[in-house]
Each structure stands twice: as structure tokens, then as C-alpha cells.
Design a protein around this nucleic acid. Sequence first.
DNA 1: CGGGATCCCAGGCGATACTG
DNA 2: CAGTATCGCCTGGGATCCCG
Lengths: 105, 105
Amino acid sequence: MARMIEKSDPLLRAQKLVGKKFDLLIIDSISSRKGRSHFNEIVKDIPTINPRILSIRLKDLERNNLITKSLVLGTPVKTEYALTDSAERLGEIISELKKWAEKHK
Amino acid sequence: MARMIEKSDPLLRAQKLVGKKFDLLIIDSISSRKGRSHFNEIVKDIPTINPRILSIRLKDLERNNLITKSLVLGTPVKTEYALTDSAERLGEIISELKKWAEKHK
DNA sequence: CGGGATCCCAGGCGATACTG
DNA sequence: CAGTATCGCCTGGGATCCCG
């Protein structure tokens, strides 16, 4: 008999993947720019984030296959963050969550 | 011209409403019991939660109109927590989030 | 432009014990 | 059964400055 303990497992997993303070905001920001953003564009969308945190979160999201990072050569070199397919699907859920939050109460 | 600053407002709002560690787990637990649960039933569903935290979270969720609390007279008296309509709608989003988390990667 | 290095801080959470 | 009382911790995040 399987353990009931695992009833909430998928949610715990979601939490580990995108549960930190700015994670959904970051994904939503990239999503709103059609799936590709530069570092400072995200900062513009989330004025309260600080570069250190953004940097940490981006790396973590990358490790977890939510975003990909690529370099755009030129002067200066730019970085470009893009959502993975999975993260784009999450983006739709985030969009529903936003609608929900706006209506709530 | 509206402030761009507010681009991520609904998400920040959602975060304040249900952004703490166990919030989604609690709502999902009640939801899985057809919208009504007792204190210790929630504890059974979320073995890692401790009574103090659950108590705090339930009060906060109640204040924010996500759950309602009522007493069921009898011996002993029981408390019953139910989801509000709004929280039930959130429950559907949580359900999608769970599916997403299971498929991811 | 896109970060890294340091230092610091609060608050959210864990553990344990107790109660109406 | 359904919580409350204490206490301590630790991690995530804020502030500031700096660099290739």
C-alpha cells in the first residue's frame, strides 16, 4: 500500500521548482516579452528585485529546465533568457493565477 | 499613464494570499476532501506540518477569505474548515499546477 | 550590460511541551 | 480534538559596492 504521505508530492515539487519569491514573476516577465528577455528587461518588469537575487534565481531556474540562457554576440554582448516549453505551459497557469488573484474577494 | 511598476501586481497579490509554504497544500487537502476538513485531517494529509504552523496558516487563510471556519456541535466539539468559492476556483488551478509539476522535465 | 562579493537582517519555520 | 506557548535557527532576501 502506497504511502499517503505522498499525497501532496507534486505540489512540493512545484514549490521546489518555482516556489521562491520572484520565480513566477520572472517567468511571467519573460513570457510577456514573447518568451525571450535580457537581464535588465526583467529588472524593469520587477523593480523591487535586486541584481544579486535575479542572478541567483535565473541560475536556479536554468538548472531546473525552466529557462535557457544564450549569448547574443555584438557590442556589447547581451545575454538572452528564454522559457523552455515546459515553462511556457507553466506561464499559462500563471496567467490563470493572475486572473484569479484579481477577482478574489 | 499607468505605472509599469504594477505589471506584476496580481502575482504579488496571489503571493500574499497563498504564498506561504503550506498554503497550497492546505487548500489542496481540504479540496480533496470535498471542500470540508477537520484540523487533524489536514495534519494527516501534510505530515510535515506542525500544529502551530497549521493554526497560523488557517487563521490567515480565513482572514483572506479563502476558508471559513465553523463549529460542529457534539462530543467532542469539532471544527470544520471549508473552502470559499474563490478558493475552490483556486483549487482547480492548483490541480493544473500539480499536473504540470508531474510532467516537468 | 550583466552580473559577482560581502555583510546583514527578519521572519517564517521546526521541535517540543502543554491545555481547554 | 484542536489548538497555544516558548525558543531557537537558518535561509532567503535586502543593501551596497565593485568588476570584466
